[in-house]
Design a protein around this nucleic acid. Structure first.
Lengths: 347, 347
DNA sequence: GAAACTCCTGCAATCGATTGCATTGATCTC
DNA sequence: GAGATCAATGCAATCGATTGCAGGAGTTTC
């Protein structure tokens, strides 16, 4: 039990097939360089011995781990978990493993470095916008380059490869929808901003408000952290307002759900008394009551494309010195949580 | 750019500190065996060269990857993603990385094997109850043992280590709650069963129904696959019934949500017309409308304990030949989706 | 029939860290 | 003061797969 039967090595296969280890290796990696007879003999031996390659040895020799690391703020978040799912699938079809890490400790540079400056992973998929780009450059080290693809909410450093959706435009589109429905008093529940710099969705919100010359009030914009709890807090805030907006654009679905639930406890029904539009289109959105109007982000696409891009870079398919930039579109999905202002009032 | 500066090796550090590589290695792994003066000199050299250990080499030499593999049916599922979060945290504090895989291809044995029969991972955390135990034994191979901890819904093979909640008892408790609320006509939306063997929650449901001598009808039990969509399908089914149960026990929250949403579309309101209790207490449960009554599973605990158990086994802290079995409790959380039958009818 | 090729296969070095054994110098014991 | 003991360090083999180089067998060419 405590001494698992030793795994067969390439040497064992070689002995079994009466060839050298080199030949076995060649059968496995470039079969066309080996004669048909030998190839078949070796293939049989591989099967009969139950040989599986020792990745550690391979990694050491080739200096490539065939593994990518993904850093996410919180996998518990359904938004990210769907992306991760897509990443894993895409990586698997290319023969790559996926290591996952969250936010650990206070010094991102150190633990990120620990991971694959040490040959555990070949590259990084970054879904955490709160990791500062300076930090990343530090991880990359002065001379070397850290193969990296970023895929988060913010427009990242133009220097680094990225797969993103156009958040600014999508936010404008969300507000536009509320405007189209007749709303003129529009509030916002924003996500966190890093470096005191407003995030893209907040900027888009402000831009739309400005362009439509709508009323802009400080107490109509509250900031949350993308959790349902912070949505609840925002809900309390809006419920307590004397002069309340008739519609709210929430920077993600979870905060929208938290806000709707809390507002309801205060007797404020959505969409009867207030319209709320979310962002992301997470799974529950369509099954929530009311079903959420939201800006759908193509999460599977984000995950898949990000993973493929990174692997292409790793395998040298991308010689292009210019950073890769992929911008995906979000779609407006109209459901029940927003209503025309006239219709809602009369409802 | 395309040629990252070569990472310093232990040899480089040794040269820098004027000692042998062996000494550097000892400073890193068993500092007490090295004199204070040397130790400090080496520690400085490590810092100055920016050395990080090459895990591939270490893994090859030690035959241990310091990495665990988790297999989940779908990370997109919020239930599992919370568990995964806990696993990653627990593993990280023990210095372990976490590889994640989903269901890939049709032959689990092959891809599971590819992972860590090949020294990529030292052990497996299995959250996927649909992987047959025979398959697992096959992966383990005849002689050797695959370090494995299972943590899924079903009571697994008593031979293997497991961290579970008592699903049968929890299911009974859920039905008991409906019974206490005066319901006598109780339906069930079940999860999938493997091997034509009913799953624990279904057994618990049947047991409770039997013991209370309640009506048991085939068309009051529909089976789903734990997705919201299958919950919607179940909702349609129940909506179409002439003689409908007054309460439903859903084997997870997502199916409960799907069912509630669909029933509402048919004019059947929860809890006014029908009470529904879920299972798991996923994040949205408390923010759903109605807030879900559910059996809360301690997901963080499951993830953390499973990871710690596996690592203990890997590090030989567990010499015990008997399989480890941890059984956690689920708690009934009463919210709005269930109502006393009198109260509901009059509401 | 010999030079020039091609094709197939093996030899041996290499990747970087670890560790049993050997060595050195110092301290201790009687 | 000679032998024993011990602490600190170095030597060199090892983990398993890959690959440049070389050699042997067979084929082609003139």
């Amino acid at each position: 039990m405590e001494n698992p039967k030793k795994m067969p090595t390439i040497q064992d296969v070689a002995r079994h097939a009466n060839v050298s280890a080199a030949t076995v290796s060649r059968v496995l990696s470039s079969p066309e360089r080996v004669s048909k007879a030998t190839r078949e003999r070796v293939t049989n031996s591989v099967r009969e011995t139950g040989y599986t390659i020792n990745q550690a040895a391979r990694t050491l020799r080739l200096q490539r781990a065939k593994t990518i690391l993904t850093a996410m703020p919180g996998i518990g978040n359904p938004f990210y978990s769907t992306i991760l799912d897509a990443v894993i699938k895409a990586a698997a079809t290319r023969g790559y493993g996926v290591l996952v890490t969250g936010r650990l400790g206070d010094d991102p540079a150190r633990w990120l470095g620990d991971y694959f400056l040490s040959n555990r992973a070949d590259g990084l998929l970054l879904f955490d916008g709160l990791l500062d780009t300076r930090t990343l450059h530090a991880v990359a080290g002065d001379g070397g380059t850290l193969p990296l693809v970023a895929a988060y909410d913010e427009l990242p450093d133009p220097q680094i490869n990225s797969v993103i959706t156009d958040n600014l435009q999508a936010a404008e589109r969300a507000v536009q929808h509320l405007y189209d429905y007749g709303h003129r008093k529009i509030g916002h529940i924003s996500g966190p901003s890093r470096n005191t710099f407003p995030n893209e969705r907040l900027i888009g919100f402000r831009k739309a408000i400005f362009e439509h010359r709508l009323e802009s009030r400080d107490d109509w914009v509250v900031s949350g952290d993308y959790t349902m709890d912070s949505g609840r807090a925002a809900g309390h805030h809006f419920a307590g307002l004397k002069d309340r907006p008739t519609a709210i654009f929430s920077a993600n679905d979870e905060m929208a759900i938290g806000a709707i639930a809390t507002l309801r406890q205060h007797g404020i029904e959505c969409p009867r008394d207030i319209s709320i539009i979310g962002f992301d289109d997470i799974n529950v959105a369509q099954n929530y009551a009311p079903a959420l109007t939201t800006m759908r982000q193509p999460r599977e696409d984000i995950g898949r494309i990000a993973a493929e891009t990174l692997i292409n870079i790793l395998e040298g398919h991308v010689i292009n010195p210019a950073p890769v930039r992929v911008v995906l579109q979000s779609d407006l999905v109209i459901r029940e949580s927003t209503a025309r202002i006239g219709a809602a009032r009369s409802g």
